[in-house]
């Protein structure tokens, strides 16, 4: 589904990713772990097309398409979703309006008709209930005045509504208490499927107790330096990055 080859990315002239290779197939859940500054978020942004993340070498192919040729919104239209580490506050735009615009933009990209208002309301009520979100929150401005946990839960509601093929979750677990973590993990697990894939980016092994990955990769200094199964994450937890011979302060 996703094929990243020899990816080099610079941000403001600084080399962050230095030849990263990663293949994610349909039905798989991959976890990317690594010390701070290793380039985890850069990888997420580069896949999803954030401006200022300059690809100097390499390729990203999604379902056979050259992803790097597409704008961020087009990548969303193709089925990619980014769960943000720091979800952005948007004053004056209600969650409801935001989601409706998002869903219809994606539908438009795919040449589909807009979703009927009734169907939209039904869907959003169902998804909010599944993720235990107070329906009143849907009327509030996107993320404005939300707690850290509420923001992450909101990301999960958006993901559930958009129903992406490929989800990238950038440190979605950071700053969450155990209850919020369970809700987020539950949200991610709902996105699993034979024709879907998930890339979980995390600093800690904690989330992986709930979202069990098929593959775990360790990112350090802009490259994947070790790959394995879920055992690798447990080893990291026990021995630390240093135990694997990775300098925690490499960057």
């Amino acid at each position: 589904m996703l094929d990243i080859k020899n990816l080099h990315v610079e941000v403001e002239g600084k080399k962050i990713l230095r030849g990263l290779n990663l293949t994610v197939n349909a039905g798989e859940v991959h976890a990317i772990m690594g010390p701070n500054g290793a380039g985890k978020s850069t990888l997420a942004y580069a896949i999803c097309g954030k401006e200022g993340y300059e690809i100097t070498e390499g390729s990203v192919t999604f379902k056979g398409k050259d992803f790097l040729e597409l704008e961020a919104n087009e990548r969303a239209g193709e089925g990619a979703f980014l769960g943000f580490q720091y979800p952005v506050e948007i004053p004056g735009v209600t969650n409801m309006n935001f989601l409706k615009t998002a869903i219809n933009s994606i539908r438009k990209y795919r040449g589909e008709d807009e979703m009927a208002a009734v169907d939209f309301l039904k869907l959003i009520r169902a998804k909010a209930a599944e993720l235990d979100m107070d329906p009143e929150m849907l009327k509030r401005a996107v993320n404005v005045g939300f707690s850290g946990g509420e923001k992450k839960r909101n990301e999960m509601v958006q993901m559930a509504m958009i129903d992406p093929i490929f989800s990238v979750l950038d440190e979605t677990d950071s700053g969450l208490d155990i209850d919020a973590l369970r809700i987020v993990a539950d949200g991610i697990n709902r996105m699993r499927g034979d024709d879907k894939a998930i890339l979980v980016i995390t600093h800690y092994q904690r989330l992986l107790d709930y979202v069990v990955p098929d593959y775990v990769h360790v990112l350090s200094d802009g490259k994947i330096v070790k790959s394995g199964d879920k055992e690798l994450a447990q080893r990291l937890e026990k021995e630390g990055y240093a135990g694997l011979g990775i300098d925690e302060n490499a960057a």
Binding site: G49, E71, N73, F81, I90, A102
Partner: peptide
């Protein structure tokens, strides 16, 4: 970018 990433 947040809005772009949601398809707008």
């Amino acid at each position: 970018f947040y809005l772009n990433s949601r398809g707008l």
